[in-house]
Amino acid sequence: MTVYQGFLSELKHRPETTVQYFLSVGDESVGLNELIGTTLRLSFLEEKACCACGRKVKGKLYGGGYCYPCVTTLAECDLCIMKPHECHFDKGTCRDEEFAKSHCMIPHYVYLALSSNVKVGLTRKNRELTRWVDQGAVRAIPIAELPTRKLAGELEMAIAEHIADKTDWRKMLKGVYEEVDLFEVREQIKAIVPEEFQQYLFDVDQLFEFTYPILENLEKIKSMSFDKEPVIEGKLIGIKGQYLIFDCGVLNIKKHTGYKIEVTTQAPVEQTA
């Protein structure tokens, strides 16, 4: 038996032949793939802390682990992060110009990904593999490179009039998706992309594919939360996106960033730096 305590961070992963997952509990990084098929017990210790400033929080955390003061002041929590096309950097009202220069005023990809369905999305260049795995994509290709996040957001919105920009997380976790040729979809998109964005489109020959460590798929998806179930215990049967998949339900780790938990495993675990 192994026991760890600490505040949760989002799942880390490496996109190898099968995606390798790691659970961050405080300063510990716990290898999860070798624990699939074993029983895990995750106990909420009734403490929460902001992932940015470390402030202890008695009530709600926002936006994936932020306290209220941080979510209302930090640039990474501004509404334009979720709606890049509404970037207001050029209006002089950005919360943090240095953050914008390093995160927003840099090249971004617009991509097609297949998870529950074909969806369009955007991500910073060189962060695409992380983004695709976080969304539980089984296949993906970039289709355009734009110089700023705002331009990428505008192109995404134009394409989203014809293709979904959301993932059905329940179907994604069940492994339910329609077989679609992303290269064919890319060709169809070229015909509907507004003229001002045509210069940013490009063709790639490589199809990125991802295999997730899953023993079996659940027929019914039950979402679990430490706010309703302070102790979650079950057989770990898979990991996909930011979800731990148990035989009794699924737990979104990213949504519980900042929760202090105790993890008890029934088997030795691999620790990573």
Rank of each mutant, 00 (worst) to 15 (best):
R55I: 12
K228G: 14
D96Q: 10
A144V: 00
D168Y: 07
D227C: 10
V133G: 01
I141N: 11
G175P: 07
C50N: 13
G249I: 11
L79Y: 12
K240I: 15
A75E: 12
V19K: 03
E270V: 03
A158E: 13
Y4M: 01
P142V: 02
I221R: 07
K56T: 06
Q242C: 12
G6M: 06
V204Q: 15
V3Q: 13
I143F: 00
L201I: 07
V231K: 07
P15Y: 01
E97T: 09
T72Q: 11
G136F: 05
D90S: 14
L61Q: 01
K220C: 01
R131G: 10
I143C: 02
D247V: 04
E161T: 08
Q242D: 13
I143L: 06
E145F: 11
T73F: 04
K190A: 10
C67Y: 04
G258P: 14
F246I: 05
E216R: 12
I143W: 00
I261R: 10
F99E: 00
L236I: 05
E195S: 14
A140S: 09
P15D: 02
K166Y: 06
H108W: 14
K190V: 08
N126E: 15
A160V: 00
P107Q: 03
L173Y: 03
L182T: 07
I261M: 09
G63Q: 13
I192K: 03
G136A: 06
R95E: 14
E28N: 12
Y111K: 00
C80G: 01
E97D: 05
L35G: 11
T130E: 15
I232T: 04
